[in-house]
Nucleic acid binder design. Structure first.
Lengths: 183, 183
DNA sequence: AACTCGGGAGAACGACCGTTCTCCATGGTC
DNA sequence: GACCATGGAGAACGGTCGTTCTCCCGAGTT
């Protein structure tokens, strides 16, 4: 197993464990036994647990935004593309191992103690906000709408994480539809 | 110092520390030294750390909802009362030691490992949702609106916690105003 | 004055965890 | 075959933390 493969396996295990059980309740030994990557190799690839957490959040950020964009790109109509964001949320919430937003959870867990993790969470949220702002602008809608839709999406994520229901996505989408018509 | 006073002091320290630095990075010894309540007494009052966390969340829940209701009760107009929720959020976000929503943070930290804490978070959110639903009903507005306003409020709380800005409250309030007019 | 008892200070215990180290096997290279 | 680098398994180390225990003090009681 070469270095790149070991890295992927380690990140796969880290994502599964950190996302599923929280960062602090998962030990490096759990990552080792789940990934099959030895502790020695793990520490060569990621010199500390905090760096592994960062790498996990980074890879997940890329993938999450790719999946969102892929979903939005199924549509051409600019307003429909805005609403497609909420369709994607609903799909995400319905995944069997959905446990809320990884970044919101990580911020609750580590935001107060790890500035690096906190910064990565802010970067992810900012990127999502910027993407939403672009969709809104492409639809010729006013800038202020983006911030409002962003809050609806965040509210849906938190609520879905706490209640384990998909329904917040649909409610957020309704509200988004009303806001689109109101402005 | 009698038992009731020790309990209050312990909860004061627990709230300050758990809310400010997160539950897991605060030891029982920190609670002891901050509160001045000895470890022995602490364990008499709260037989485990988890029970102390629950008691902290419970007392904070009561106070938080009281403060919200007090703010709303400054107004008589039913629609104004609904919007006053967002005024209260803004006031809260501006407090100097604001670190986001205590329940969202606790859920991110302990939701996956402590069913008791997770249940308490759900109870708090449900109570907030029910309060909002009552304000909406009292204003003669449709039920569906309550869920939408709830998501805006939750989105504002998460975002304010992550960015440390008060502005999400104002944006949520704008969106809420539009939704009130739209239905 | 002796006794009791709740409580304080802090040591002690046991478990866990992030990180490093030891020892050994393996496979490529000369 | 000798040598070396690489990496695996897992022990070891140092620190932290939740929880309990020991020892002692002081106040109230008889």
């Amino acid at each position: 197993m070469d270095s790149a493969a070991a890295r992927e396996r380690a990140l796969d295990a880290a994502e599964e464990l950190f996302y599923g059980r929280g960062v602090q309740s998962v030990g490096m030994d759990d990552v080792r036994s789940t990934s099959g990557v030895s502790l020695k190799r793990l520490y060569q690839l990621f010199p500390s647990k905090e760096l592994l957490v960062e790498a996990y959040l980074e890879r997940r950020d890329t993938r999450w935004r790719e999946q969102l964009a892929a979903h939005v790109d199924r549509h051409e109509d600019p307003r429909r593309r805005v609403l497609a964001v909420f369709d994607r949320l609903e799909e995400w919430f319905a995944e069997p191992d959905f446990r809320g937003c990884a970044w919101i959870n990580a911020h609750g867990e580590l935001g107060a103690t790890s500035p690096r993790v906190a910064a990565r969470v802010r970067a992810h949220k900012q990127a999502f906000h910027a993407y939403l702002a672009r969709l809104v602008a492409d639809a010729g809608l006013p800038d202020t709408l983006a911030g409002q839709l962003y809050l609806l999406a965040e509210g849906a994520m938190v609520t879905a994480g706490i209640t384990r229901a998909t329904e917040p996505a649909a409610r957020a989408r309704e509200a988004a539809g009303l806001l689109l018509r109101a402005v």
